[in-house]
């Protein structure tokens, strides 16, 4: 803890599923207050497991934090129940099933148990489109609208730390750009710290202050978001580019596969 006490600190965290399968190992990461931190990695790298370790959702899959510590504002929170973690001010926007499909938009925003005063208005302020869709059932929203509602409902919970799992998944680039801007606005205007898990490195590094890269359940790289964006490996793996010329997806995949085989 060199830069003062961070808001969230994971220290050598290990998560084990079904008592035998180790999903992440020795994960250490810090999120300072007021920052947007990106957690990058491919499918199966352990990003979502790490988020679940923070938000208390491991127990449902018969998984536990078996080593290390998750500290929030200096207090240990690993293996605590989800509603307690929400009450402490950490709110997760999950990757899938992020809204209640049979509830209207307005009902989605009031269903939560906020810390302090209800803040449904704030969601409408950040996402004016939601106000127009107030009476519509959430199951009929488009992917982008659904993500807005999920973010709005999370904000209405009054979080201090927002965990966002795959902001860009399945959304059009224009929508993703817009949502990324809203995340910045959420941080700048409301002072909410954000931990963003993404496969889409350019989007994440574009708005983040700091980035971590996970591979096979470990953090393999971390650094200033701008510097990470310029890093050779990142450019090759996640941005699909290599020294000026664009690589095709197939070439990158091939390269990654050979790297995995030959170390």
């Amino acid at each position: 803890m060199t830069t003062g006490a961070p808001l969230l600190a994971l220290e050598q965290v290990e998560v084990t599923y079904h008592r035998v399968i180790t999903a992440v190992q020795g994960v250490t990461l810090k999120v300072a207050r007021g920052q947007i931190v990106a957690l990058l990695g491919t499918n199966g790298a352990g990003k979502t497991t790490t988020l679940r370790a923070i938000s208390g959702f491991l127990g449902l899959d018969d998984a536990r934090v078996t080593e290390g510590a998750v500290a929030y504002r200096g207090e240990r929170i690993e293996n605590r129940p989800p509603h307690e973690i929400t009450a402490r001010g950490i709110v997760l926007v999950p990757e899938r099933d992020k809204v209640f499909p049979n509830l209207s938009v307005a009902e989605n925003l009031v269903a939560n148990v906020p810390r302090g005063a209800p803040r449904a208005d704030l969601a409408y302020e950040l996402f004016p489109k939601l106000a127009e869709l107030r009476g519509r059932e959430a199951g009929y929203l488009s992917g982008g609208e659904r993500q807005m509602l999920a973010l709005g409902a999370a904000i209405a919970c009054g979080p201090e730390l927002l965990l966002v799992d795959e902001l860009s998944l399945g959304l059009a680039p224009v929508v993703v750009q817009d949502l990324a801007k809203r995340l910045q606005e959420i941080r700048d205007r409301l002072g909410i710290t954000i931990l963003l898990v993404e496969q889409n490195a350019p989007v994440a590094l574009g708005i983040a202050d700091w980035g971590y890269v996970m591979e096979n359940g470990r953090v393999v790289l971390d650094g200033d978001a701008a510097r990470l964006g310029a890093h050779q490996d990142i450019r090759e793996f996640y941005l699909g580019q290599s020294s000026g010329e664009r690589r095709s997806y197939r070439e990158v995949k091939q390269y990654r596969r050979s790297r995995r085989w030959y170390g």
Partner: peptide
């Protein structure tokens, strides 16, 4: 009512309900 809406929410997706701070 708020509690009634929460009850419907918990019935649809208990995980998400817990994430939103609802005590299941």
């Amino acid at each position: 009512t708020r509690w009634g809406i929460r009850m419907r929410a918990a019935g649809q997706n208990p995980l998400l309900a817990a994430q939103r701070g609802i005590r299941l």
